[in-house]
């Protein structure tokens, strides 16, 4: 089974079955992964779905889009692998992806 691993700030992790054709934010919310608020429902307008992608996965996930860059600019604790989970579409190619959660959402 294809899975995505969400790693909490305290190090605990959970494997979530990968459903294709949704966003990483929605996948996390549907599976009640704590630490992702997604207050704007995926419109790239709230910055509360901040995640950090493992470096080796950055290419597979693709670059930040322009709107997302703007929101991430204002996110505290932004890191090179920072992304907004609502802007990442889930595909089979992301099987095994490791996603870290920040300590806080903005």
């Amino acid at each position: 089974m294809a899975t995505i691993t969400f790693i909490q700030h305290d190090g605990t992790s959970r494997d979530i079955p990968l459903t294709e054709g949704t966003s990483l934010m929605q996948l996390a919310r549907d599976n009640r992964v704590p630490g992702i608020d997604g207050d704007c429902g995926g419109a790239c307008a709230c910055g509360t779905c901040h995640v950090i992608i493992d470096r080796e996965w950055l290419a597979a996930v693709g670059p930040r889009n322009a709107e997302e860059k703007q929101m991430l600019e204002l996110t505290p604790d932004v890191q090179p692998g920072s992304r907004l989970a609502c802007q990442i579409q889930t595909t089979g190619a992301l099987d095994g992806l490791r996603v870290h959660l920040p300590e806080h959402q903005m």
């Binding site: 703007q70 600019e73 204002l74 505290p76 604790d77 300590e103 806080h104 959402q105 903005m106």
Partner: peptide, 19 residues
């Protein structure tokens, strides 16, 4: 508007950042 907005907000936002 950005970019002036972004520079000024970043300067002060830590005062109310979750940390």
């Amino acid at each position: 508007d950005p970019p002036r907005h972004d520079a000024q907000r970043k300067a002060v936002q830590d005062v109310v950042a979750p940390k």
